[in-house]
């Protein structure tokens, strides 16, 4: 997500492997690009880095530091630097990840995903007081940031501290696109995509628009209106007939139209005579 990508590169070492990375890139992205598995719950390449899950922590050492001194940093937010040494899986890193996962397991005892991740770091069962809840939200806010990116900001974090939660305070703003639910790492957002032509999410019920010819669901009317508005805001024309057609139908229609161009050529040739 770094702006002004230049061709400048910096040279650094990750887990003993040397690498050249573009200046401004984050350690997490560079490490993952090298095939190193750095776990993370709140990072999504398309969204602003947030740095909340603290799972992607790595140890770093800058050139000039004492040999014994290392620092724990959040790799999703830390830009690469010249001469940096990074350890993505040291004892200190694993120890902190396990405590973080232990805490998450206490927060969302019902989440299989977190339990599986915890197991990878040796946490079979949380050592802390479990919350008595079926909710599996871990407050990564991917849904909030995605909703903001889409241009609705229907989802928000409310309150603060341990009581902080995610909700849709104004149901009118939700367009039922289901992006939040599909991105949620712990499947904490319940929804029904299509139940007899109705969609349900965030306690709101939506109608669905389908392609007349294929019966394919195109989305909710609110969703289609939003895309149209957005496209028009970008100066795109928005042919009425395309509004309610699936990709397949659009493709077919276009192919048909182009194939008819042969007739046009004939006509042009006739006129030329």
């Amino acid at each position: 997500m770094s702006e002004a990508k230049t061709n400048e590169t910096v040279h650094l070492t990750i887990d003993g492997r040397e690498v050249d990375a573009p200046k401004g890139a984050m350690i997490l992205d560079v490490a993952r690009g090298m095939g190193i598995d750095v776990p993370s719950l709140c990072a999504h390449p398309g969204l602003e880095p947030f740095g909340a899950c603290r799972l992607c922590v790595v140890e770093i050492q800058k050139p000039g530091w004492d040999d014994w001194y290392k620092q724990l940093v959040t790799s999703c937010l830390y830009p690469v630097e010249e001469g940096l040494k990074v350890w993505t899986d040291s004892d200190e890193v694993r120890q902190n990840r396990s405590v973080v996962l232990d805490l998450q397991m206490a927060r969302v005892p019902e989440s299989d995903y977190i339990r599986e991740l915890g197991r990878q770091y040796g946490v079979e069962k949380t050592s802390y007081a479990e919350r008595d809840t079926k909710d599996t939200c871990i407050m990564c806010t991917i849904c909030v940031r995605a909703c903001e990116a889409i241009g609705r900001s229907a989802i928000a974090t409310l309150s603060r501290g341990p009581d902080k939660y995610v909700d849709v305070p104004n149901k009118d703003a939700c367009i039922g696109c289901l992006v939040c639910a599909s991105l949620c790492p712990t499947d904490a957002i319940p929804f029904t995509a299509n139940d007899n032509g109705k969609r349900r999410i965030w306690d709101k019920e939506f109608d669905l628009v389908t392609d007349e010819r294929t019966g394919e669901v195109l989305g909710t009317p609110e969703y289609l209106a939003h895309v149209q508005k957005r496209a028009e805001g970008n100066g795109l024309v928005w042919p009425e007939t395309l509004k309610q057609e699936s990709a397949k139908v659009k493709r077919y229609e276009y192919a048909r139209k182009l194939s008819r161009v042969a007739d046009v050529e004939d006509r042009l040739a006739d006129e030329a005579k």
Partner: peptide, 21 residues
């Protein structure tokens, strides 16, 4: 601090609650 934590990151939000418990 529980009352004042912003609740963004896990160690602070969840850790404080567990330490308090």
């Amino acid at each position: 601090l529980i009352g004042e934590s912003c609740g963004k990151c896990v160690p602070c939000r969840e850790g404080l609650r567990q330490v308090y418990d």
